Computed example of a mutant assay.
Amino acid sequence: SMLAGQIVDMVENFPKYLDSLINWINETFHTELSRVEVQDSVLKSDWLQKYVQNSATGVLDVSATVLGGLFRLLTIFLFAFYFAADGPRFRRALCSVLPPARQAEVLRAWEIAVDKTGGYLYSRGLMALISGVAHFVLFEILDVPYAPALAVWVGLVSQFIPTIGTYLAGALPMLIAFTVNPWYALWVLGFVVVYQQFENYVLQPKLTSKTVDIHPAVAFGSVVAGTALLGAVGALIAIPAVATLQAFLGAYVKRYDVTDDPRVHGHRRYGEAVVARLQKALQHKKENQGTEDS
């Protein structure tokens, strides 16, 4: 109820935020702008009319794209619901056409995929919570209005919209903070940039390595590779896909014991091995001298 009320108030007061921005521009640059004049100039501008004329032919294409995206999103939610609700029945139907030996393998692969995907979603939800709390503390310190609603916005948008989610999440708090004090907008921008670096290089690799059991470097590299190959969708599915593949390899690839070779364990173990060999050589030399004396 509190969040809903704050969102309604934020939307209703949006013109006031624009007025505050225009007033700051007038005071800083000694202009005489008004919101009505800005709206009229934008609506009556030649570039806007040309843009509308050029884009009028593509309205149907844009509408079809939006409707197609909504349909695909609805399809994903629909299948996700049926897989969750009728998962046991679906597994029984699938296993009924397979021999008993194959049934165990299919069920094992199914559980691995579900576990890794669920762990990834859990990590994104946890990062959304941490991000929301961190930004809520900043908004409270700066006395920015609607701090809880803005914190929820930043946490969800930054985590569940790949690539551009961080920039979309930070734009709205910056505008609201600007109405309080222009310097507060810079503080919000700086905090968003610094926190994003901390999340990308410290928090996200650590959490994903714990929840989906992959190395932080592999988690970071998989996101980069997924973004390069499939864009935003690839960034979203890269980590659970790599974690599932790694789990499959760990389950079906036979492993062997590693030989006790210093080159395998690094320079530190190599130095320990050299010291052990020297000690063994000295001990052997002392034993030989004792034998000769006797």
Rank of each mutant, 00 (worst) to 15 (best):
W153C: 06
Y51A: 13
L74M: 10
Y120G: 01
F79K: 04
D257L: 08
V193R: 04
F71I: 13
L121Y: 13
V212F: 05
P182F: 00
S294C: 09
A251L: 07
N288F: 12
A217E: 08
D260I: 00
I164R: 01
L121K: 07
F139W: 01
F83R: 03
A251M: 05
H135R: 04
T227H: 01
Q159C: 11
I22N: 03
W47N: 08
L33S: 06
R102Y: 05
Q6F: 02
A171S: 15
R92A: 12
Y184P: 10
Y51V: 05
G132I: 00
I112V: 12
C95S: 13
N288Q: 15
L43P: 02
Y270E: 11
Y252S: 01
N200S: 12
D115Y: 03
V38Q: 10
L73C: 09
P216W: 01
P100Y: 06
I164E: 07
A243L: 02
A281L: 13
F198K: 00
G250P: 00
Y146P: 02
Y184E: 05
S96F: 05
H215K: 11
H30E: 15
H265V: 13
V188Q: 08
P88E: 09
V59R: 10
Y201F: 15
G165R: 00
D293T: 09
A225Q: 03
F90Q: 09
V258D: 00
E111C: 03
E32I: 03
M2T: 15
L203F: 11
G125C: 06
V42T: 14
L172Q: 09
F83G: 02
F160Y: 14
V180I: 12
S131H: 00
L73K: 01
Y146V: 00
D46L: 02
K280Q: 15
D261I: 00
S222N: 11
D143Y: 08
F136D: 05
V264W: 03
G69T: 07
E287C: 14
S55H: 08
K44Q: 11
M127P: 00
V52T: 09
L78K: 11
H215D: 15
A64L: 12
T57H: 12
Q196F: 01
D213N: 13
V154F: 02
Q197F: 07
I130H: 03
P15W: 07
L142M: 07
L98Y: 04
K286R: 15
T166C: 01
V152Q: 03
A56N: 13
L203Q: 02
H135S: 07
R91I: 11
F136P: 01
L150V: 03
